[in-house]
Design a protein around this nucleic acid. Structure first.
Length: 273
DNA sequence: CACCACCCCTGGACGC
DNA sequence: TGCGTCCAGGGGTGGT
């Protein structure tokens, strides 16, 4: 399931394939997946005739910016992928939007569960002041002070706060569990009870787990594959996520399972205070 | 306002 | 082998 590392890995693998390449045409197979699509010039709004100039990521959102300045924001949700297809291979199921490049390659947005989607904006600026305006700072650059500021006034469990994209953009269920484990902070701890030392450990742990995963090519739990169709390499490296009942990698005690903010949560009852 | 429960959706795991 | 059931969860929305 895509979180920040998967989106960043996608951004990096997609860039060399599409930057500067003219988009010849676009086919929208499911209109309800594309939000803010104008009645007129829908293809142009999806960058037909344009050339991607830049791929910008904030949290789990990625925007393709055309040389015209138009922006197309892609959110992968739970099951979304973006793939580059070479040659006349058949389209997969649930291919909702397909761009054909001048090179003949096709770019496919596929999302079986449709928790993701595509948002049209006239510019990156409009995206930043609109759809992205409620997002907190990007999790990859979070520091102790920034984290403390964003948590101010929140009494809920620290894990619930980490999952809130207004607090911090990019952390999902997997990396929340992983970061809290590395920081030795229990996920159910009310956010205001964290000491400065714990906040510093947590901020460091968030950046560390995200960087590790980006370098490993993103995580593979279910549906994630990168632009070339490769699955991620992080799967076996999760320390606690999805490992409830199995031994803690540090102390060996069985990892507990709890539910926080409606999300399955794994934690070590002994290492995480 | 802060927080929480519920809902959207499909495919994979599992039991019989 | 096939069918039914349950479960995963990001984020929007509506209720408390």
């Amino acid at each position: 399931m895509p979180e920040l590392p998967e989106v960043e890995h996608l951004r990096r693998t997609l860039e060399p394939a599409i930057l500067g390449v003219r988009i010849a045409s676009v086919v929208i197979a499911r209109r309800d997946v594309v939000h803010g699509l104008p009645k007129r010039d829908a293809a142009a709004a999806l960058l037909a005739g344009d050339r991607p100039r830049e791929l910008v990521r904030h949290g789990k959102h990625m925007a393709v910016i055309g040389s015209s300045g138009r922006a197309v924001c892609i959110h992968l949700g739970m099951s979304g992928t973006v793939r580059v297809l070479d040659g006349p291979v058949p389209l997969p199921d649930h291919a909702h939007v397909v761009w054909t490049l001048q090179t003949g390659q096709r770019l496919v947005f596929r999302d079986p569960r449709r928790f993701g989607g595509i948002w049209i904006a006239s510019s990156l600026d409009e995206l930043r002041t609109g759809r992205w305006s409620d997002l907190g700072p990007d999790a990859l650059a979070i520091e102790s002070k920034g984290l403390r500021d964003r948590l101010a006034g929140s009494s809920r469990a620290i894990k619930a706060a980490l999952l809130d994209q207004r607090v911090l953009a990019g952390v999902g269920n997997i990396y929340a569990d992983e970061a809290l484990f590395l920081a030795r902070v229990h996920p159910a701890r009310p956010a205001p009870t964290l000491t400065n030392d714990e906040l510093a450990r947590l901020a460091g742990a968030i950046v560390r787990v995200l960087r590790e995963s980006i370098e490993a090519g993103g995580s593979t739990l279910r549906d994630y594959v990168d632009a070339q169709g490769r699955s991620g390499g992080q799967q076996r490296q999760h320390r606690v996520y999805g490992r409830s009942g199995q031994p803690c990698p540090v102390c060996g005690r069985a990892l507990e399972r709890l539910v926080i903010a409606q999300r399955g949560t794994s934690a070590c009852p002994s290492c995480q205070k």
